[in-house]
Each structure stands twice: as structure tokens, then as C-alpha cells.
């Protein structure tokens, strides 16, 4: 395949940045999207132009390191991560626009790389169950109904990639936040801190500059792990209950 790539280049956080256009040829259908960018980078290196910086690590859809807005869609046209997107989703002659996540709370570091440390700080504010090492009771002493365990697992599969934020016109991280609230809130072990957790994490979310949720639903449509929208209802419900309890 021959392709035209329009790629956002920005030298550092303060640079204004702009789109550069590159032509690339000899791309096979079996390559992953990131392997296609590897080929571009080899070519740039050869020509004496600095390679394009982009994030990836596991390249199997689980670490959440890869990102990229591809033709305006987070992780591109399929329901998967960028690293699992393959070139057979594109056609010979296509023009592909590649940009970093766009959100005030995820400042650009360089080219296609952004700073997502706000997610870590949201977790720090309460996204855990306090259980010091060695203090745990025997694992089977507290049974967990299977339905709760399954729901907890399903939402715990969030990979913290930030696509939900990039997709949201308000730049809200409600899907990410709701997934964590729901994961821990479904489990008996998560109950003691349930109400303080939702209040503290929501406050941190707002403090980081993520926007509010107005129920547009773009986040769930973009999420590579198909985290369902109902975690946001759960988030709101828990928040209301917490407020009533005076947290």
C-alpha cells in the first residue's frame, strides 16, 4: 500500500506544533498500525529527519501505553487499541491524519506523546482498598457473589489509556473514574471506603481539569475495552449517596 500520512509534530510542551505530511510506500496489510509508523521512522532516520515520537509498550492491547487520534478517532476505526489495529483496516492511497490525544488535562510532551499522570493522581486520591501487606484475612473467608465478581472484573479491565477523555467533547474522565468506582464498589472488601472514595476521586478528577459529563456517550463508543456507560450512572448514584451521608 502507498499512503499519505499527516502527522502532528511538536518539539516539546511549549512548541506550538503543526501537521507534517509524509508519503510512505510498501506497507503490507499484515502490519500493525504502529509497525507502519516504525517503517516511517526508519525512513526518516535514513533521511536525517528525527523520527516521530509516539508511545507504545506491550503492543498487545493491555498496558494502555499507546494512544493516537487516527482520522479524528481515538485508537482509530476499530474497537481496539492502536497497537492492535492493523493496516488491513485501510486502503491503498488513503490519507491518514495522526494526532495526539487532545485534552487540556493531557498536555502534549512531544509529537504524539502526552502526559497522562493526572490518571495516577486520581487513583492516589482514593482508587484503592486500604489493606496493608500481611493484614489480610484468609481469602475464602468472605465469599463474593459471582455476579458481583463478574461485574467487578469487567470494569476492572480498563487499561487507563485515556481514549475516553480524548473522545469526549467536554474532556471528561467520567468513564475511567466510573470504572474504578464500580470495580471497588462491587466488592465487599471495597465497602468501608466506598463513600469517601467517590467523593475524593471526583474532587481530584475536577481538580485536574477534566470536564463534567453531559451524557454524550462518545467515551464508551471509543473505549477499546468496552467499558459500559452505566459505570457513569453508578458513579453519580454513589456520589449522591455519599453526599446524603454527609461525606
Amino acid at each position: 500500500m502507498n499512503l499519505t500520512l499527516k502527522i502532528w509534530r511538536q518539539t516539546d510542551a511549549v512548541d506550538k506544533g503543526k501537521i507534517h505530511t509524509y508519503a510512505i510506500s510498501g506497507i503490507s496489510q499484515d502490519m500493525s498500525f504502529l509497525e507502519m509508523l516504525d517503517v516511517l521512522n526508519e525512513q526518516l532516520n535514513e533521511q536525517g529527519e528525527e523520527p516521530v515520537a509516539f508511545d507504545s509498550d506491550c503492543r498487545e492491547g493491555i498496558c494502555g501505553m499507546c494512544s493516537l487520534m487516527i482520522n479524528g478517532e481515538p485508537h482509530g476505526p476499530e474497537v481496539t487499541t492502536t497497537c492492535q489495529l492493523h493496516m488491513r483496516s485501510f486502503n491503498d492511497g488513503d490519507t491518514i491524519t495522526i494526532e495526539p490525544w487532545r485534552s487540556g488535562a493531557f498536555p502534549v510532551v512531544k509529537d504524539l506523546v502526552v502526559d497522562r499522570s493526572a490518571f495516577d493522581r486520581i487513583i492516589q486520591s482514593g482508587g484503592y482498598i486500604s489493606a496493608n501487606t500481611g493484614s489480610a484475612p484468609e481469602a475464602n473467608s468472605v465469599p463474593v457473589p459471582r455476579d458481583n465478581a463478574v461485574r467487578a472484573f469487567n470494569v476492572a479491565t480498563c487499561i487507563g489509556c485515556g481514549a475516553c477523555v480524548a473522545a469526549c467533547p467536554n474532556g471528561s474522565a467520567s468513564l475511567f473514574l466510573g470504572a474504578k468506582i464500580t470495580h471497588l464498589g462491587e466488592l465487599p472488601q471495597g465497602q468501608p471506603e466506598r463513600w469517601s472514595r467517590v467523593v475524593d476521586m471526583t474532587a481530584q478528577h475536577d481538580h485536574e481539569g477534566f470536564g463534567g459529563c453531559t451524557n454524550i456517550g462518545e467515551c464508551a463508543a471509543a473505549c477499546p475495552k468496552e467499558i459500559p456507560l452505566d459505570v457513569i450512572s453508578q458513579l453519580n448514584k454513589d456520589l449522591r449517596t455519599a453526599m446524603r451521608h454527609g461525606h
Partner: peptide
């Protein structure tokens, strides 16, 4: 065995049987 106890206490959603046990 201590590892499993610790992880369950942290909220690791291991697979469970219908009776709620691991």
C-alpha cells in the same frame, strides 16, 4: 498462599464459583 489472601483483600477480581468462593 499469603499472596492470594493479600490480593483478594485489595479487591483483585479473581474468578469465582457460583457459591462465591474462589
Amino acid at each position: 498462599t499469603n499472596i492470594i489472601d493479600q490480593c483478594v483483600a485489595q479487591g483483585v477480581p479473581f474468578a469465582r464459583e457460583y457459591g462465591g468462593l474462589l
